[in-house]
């Protein structure tokens, strides 16, 4: 599991954003919202998290391919300030969102995070992904039984030598 969402500042941000009506089931948030986890009632997508190939992870998770959508707002830095904790957030105006996933194709395990979104929940997620090197970051949003995506390239550099 490469997401570092369990770190408290991020958790706090999610709580604040959710304003009390979010029930969020985030795999890997072991100390957070156990009731929501129980409510999600889906089994952990172990095979998808083991994948080395982005397309295969998406297929295992959703059984379909995604189409790009401009209704997904993916916020990620152009160049990471620290590849170990890259702040990446997604929100969407798509209706009836049931899950959100983050795929980083250049990571050793490409599926970075997968969130089940219960009905009535505002789909607005901020998390931090660990990135070993420059890669696109793909946000997948499952909405009304269809799969949509947005992507942005995030550069990871050794730094130094700036003008």
């Amino acid at each position: 599991m490469t997401t570092s969402i369990g770190r408290f500042p991020v958790t706090r941000r999610l709580v604040l954003r959710g304003a009390g009506f979010v029930t969020l089931a985030g795999f890997g948030i072991t100390s957070f919202a156990p009731a929501a986890l129980a409510a999600a009632n889906d089994k952990y997508p172990e095979d998808a998290f083991r994948q080395k190939d982005g397309k295969e992870a998406i297929r295992l998770l959703y059984g379909r391919t995604a189409e790009p959508s401009d209704q997904i707002k993916l916020d990620a830095p152009e160049i990471a300030e620290n590849g170990a904790v890259v702040p990446i957030s997604v929100s969407t105006s798509l209706p009836n969102v049931t899950s959100v996933a983050f795929v980083v194709p250049a990571n050793p395990n490409v599926l970075a995070a997968y969130y089940k979104i219960p009905e009535g929940t505002m789909p607005d997620i901020a998390n931090r992904l660990k990135m070993a090197k420059t890669s696109s970051v793909i946000a997948l949003v499952e909405s009304g039984g269809k799969l949509f995506s947005a992507a942005k390239e995030v550069k990871v550099t050794i730094g130094g030598c700036g003008g």
Binding site: E78, I79, A80, E81, N82, T157, G163
Partner: peptide, 24 residues
Amino acid sequence: AFPYVPIAHPKRFTPDWTFGIREQ
């Protein structure tokens, strides 16, 4: 401001701040 201060320079100078182009 220069969007890549903590990348081009030692991060210890600006440990509390995060930069970027911030188009949105």
